[in-house]
Amino acid sequence: MSCWEVIADYGLRSLGIGERLLPRDDFTLCKQVVLIGSGMIWNIYFGALALVTGFFLATAVALGKAARNPVARKLSTWFIFVFRGSPLFIQFFFAYFAFLSLKGVSPIFDPFTAAWLGALIVLFLNTAAYSGEIFYGALQAIPRGDLEAADAYGFTGWARFRRITWPTLLRLAWPAYTNEAIFLFHATTLVYFSGFPAWRQKGDALYYANYFADKTFNPFVPYPILAGYFILLTLVIIGIFGLVNRRLNRHLPQAARGKIRFRPNLLR
């Protein structure tokens, strides 16, 4: 069985396309690389969607936390506290069992117990809380002069936010936000270890790496493969976010532009 056949059989296995059974014997390097790579589809799916949707909620939460209205402020503060103060792992478990209980109430909740929706919602809320805190910090750090200049030019309300506050907020928050995006992609590996079942063995990269480690009793091959994929993914994220960073800072003199550096990564 050549490696091309393996790619045809297992390349999209994590989506349920191709071979039905996972390899049982003869765990070649090619099979491990292809199947773990196939699992990366789910990591990218969870990470990308949660990041894009979470971005908007995060902006709202940051503005809420800085708002004068006490209700909005309390709500945002508590939202951030709950999701940043507890482990993502426990959040996954709680959400899964909560959705399972709701399933008994109404069949509408059926898809929520599947990872593709249920876990996505948890990741969305989680990243919104973490990024919300980052954006809130940036909002507090906007130079007073910028806002005074906006007032002097007669900017008010939405135009002031859209033209002055928001771009500056993003510019200041961007390095930290890049880090958050990298965390988020790393956090997606928790999904299939925290209650959400991998239906028909359609799992993410770590799920397959763990499968191979269990079968071959040799952790020294699948986990480094997984590590390689994630380092690659991290570099891609840094590349994309670096481009955005360049655009956000394009009005600044060359020397003042902050470069995004690869900073220490911690799990949550």
Partner: peptide, 19 residues
């Protein structure tokens, strides 16, 4: 130990250390 999901390290080290 950076740049790779930590949970992967947890799963890896437990078997690797034991062996």
């Amino acid at each position: 130990v950076r740049g790779v999901p930590d949970i992967a390290f947890f799963l890896f080290f437990v078997i690797a250390l034991d062996q």
